[in-house]
Amino acid sequence: MSELALTLIRLAFLGLLWLFVLLTIFVLRRDLRQPAETRPTGRARPVKAPKPAKVARQAKVRGTKLVVTEGPLTGTVIPLNTAQVTIGRAPDSTVVIEDDYASSRHARVYPAEGAWVVEDLGSTNGTWIDRTRITTPTVLPVGAPLRVGRTTLQLQR
């Protein structure tokens, strides 16, 4: 085998080795972007906040489940029956969220007058329905984003 051919093979080997490294990094990069796109609230499919008029009408309709749409528990479905649901970092909460921005006992969702009501339990960073921080027990409209720390939940029918 000639010297030239061997040099070429040598360079080809190093080239292929680096190609592998670059491919790996390419996969990594796509991988980092992927979850954001699949998240329903991600760039690809922006969430439209329900119009206030619609909220008022929907408020009378009882939801049957809470769905986590954002945060570490994304995709989790919490069926609602008659019991209250507590949200927080405390291990005995119904929905335990691992989030430094959430308090141990952050909020609770309980049924009242044919609707689901959210009450903030004195959390540090507050409980938000859409863009509004709630200070008193507030009716949770179907479809509105309920934000606790970095987690977003949604009441669904």
């Binding site: 992927q34 979850p35 699949t38 998240r39 329903p40 609230t41 499919r45 969430v47 439209k48 769905v67 749409t69 994304t74 995709g75 479905v77 479809g143 949604q154 669904q156």
Partner: peptide
């Protein structure tokens, strides 16, 4: 998309 939990699971 927003109400459909199925859409959440499309992690490749």
């Amino acid at each position: 998309s927003l109400t459909d939990p199925q859409s959440v699971r499309r992690q490749p």
